[in-house]
């Protein structure tokens, strides 16, 4: 459990970091929290010749609300998210999510942006970000660009980031009033990846029907994080009574593509998506009404 040797750089600015990435190309790997990367390096499943450590770049650890977005900087740790008053009061779904990632010690190092940038469909934030309609801000030699999170995960362990780009920020639209969200995950024990996870965000209109802003994201039931678009389309404009919740959850289950593995057979996971979707919608509705 010893990593292979590598070159190490710790740039002091984002520009320097981008310049390094541009120079090194695919030889470089960004180190932020390192809680996925370092174990992979110790297992020698990953052996990047050059590590670009972005932890020395100041000013990337912000959680702020600005211009209609919650903004999470590249060096915000999971535990920062968990403790943020802003997040706790406005985005309980983010607290749901971060608090079931790995364990408290890992969360002290692991970054929220890294949880997306790793491109792992088993990670928890992607589903939540899909449900929230988040935008990934990438910075590279060609400047900054926004990538809607639904376009961020083209394939297994792959993201829309170019080799010379850094995920600088996640932007989450501030939801309108009468919005609630929840993330539910079934894990075999603390620290495990999800057997299945479901994130739901809904906004109700004046008549109590679901608006077009509904978002449903699924964790670890496919080769990429899944945006359950059919279930989202189904709930739009609907009163979410018991029957509608049931139907939505069945549609979401149908959108999952799990495989048999050590966490369980595919049919089990598909059914978990159904159960967790229904429960997450109910929890989200409670939160619309001010529940916790």
């Amino acid at each position: 459990m010893i990593p292979r040797s590598f070159e190490y750089s710790a740039p002091g600015t984002l520009d320097e970091a981008v310049a390094l990435l541009q120079k090194l190309g695919s030889d470089a790997k960004i180190l932020s929290g390192g809680q996925s990367l370092i174990p992979m390096m110790k297992l020698r499943l990953a052996s990047p010749p050059h590590i670009v450590d972005i932890n020395r770049i100041p000013g990337l650890d912000y959680i702020t609300e600005k211009d209609g977005f919650l903004r999470i900087g590249a060096l915000v740790r999971e535990s920062d998210l968990e403790r943020s008053e802003l997040v706790r009061s406005r985005f309980p779904i983010l607290v749901d999510t971060t608090s079931v990632i790995a364990d408290p010690l890992v969360r002290n190092q692991a970054t929220v942006c890294g949880n997306l940038a790793h491109g792992d469909p088993a990670n928890d934030h992607p589903a939540t970000m899909l449900a929230l309609g988040a935008i990934v801000v990438a910075v590279g030699p060609r400047g900054e660009r926004d990538v809607p999170v639904e376009n961020f995960f083209p394939a297994l362990f792959t993201t829309a980031l170019e080799a010379d780009e850094i995920l600088r920020e996640i932007k989450i639209p501030i939801p309108p009033p009468s919005t609630g969200g929840a993330y539910l995950k079934l894990e075999r024990k603390v620290g495990d990846y999800a057997t299945a996870g479901v994130a739901v965000q809904i906004t109700l209109n004046n008549s109590g029907a679901c608006t077009a802003a509904a978002g449903i994201g699924l964790t670890n039931v496919g080769f990429t994080p899944i945006k359950a678009v059919k279930a989202e389309a189904f709930v739009k404009g609907k009163q979410l009574d018991q029957a509608a919740v049931k139907q939505a959850s069945e549609i979401a289950a149908g959108e999952s593509h799990p495989v048999d593995d050590i966490r369980g057979p595919a049919d089990y996971k598909r059914d978990l998506v159904r159960v967790l979707t229904a429960r997450a919608i109910v929890r989200a509705l409670e939160r619309v009404k001010g529940g916790v």
Partner: peptide, 27 residues
């Protein structure tokens, strides 16, 4: 455990408890 699961290596780094088997010394 070597894979950041057991916490036997936990130290406090700048006030936060972390698993020192999953941090490089240079960090």
């Amino acid at each position: 455990c070597d894979t950041s699961h057991c916490g036997a290596c936990t130290v406090v780094l700048d006030g936060r408890a972390v698993k020192s088997c999953t941090v490089f010394a240079i960090q």
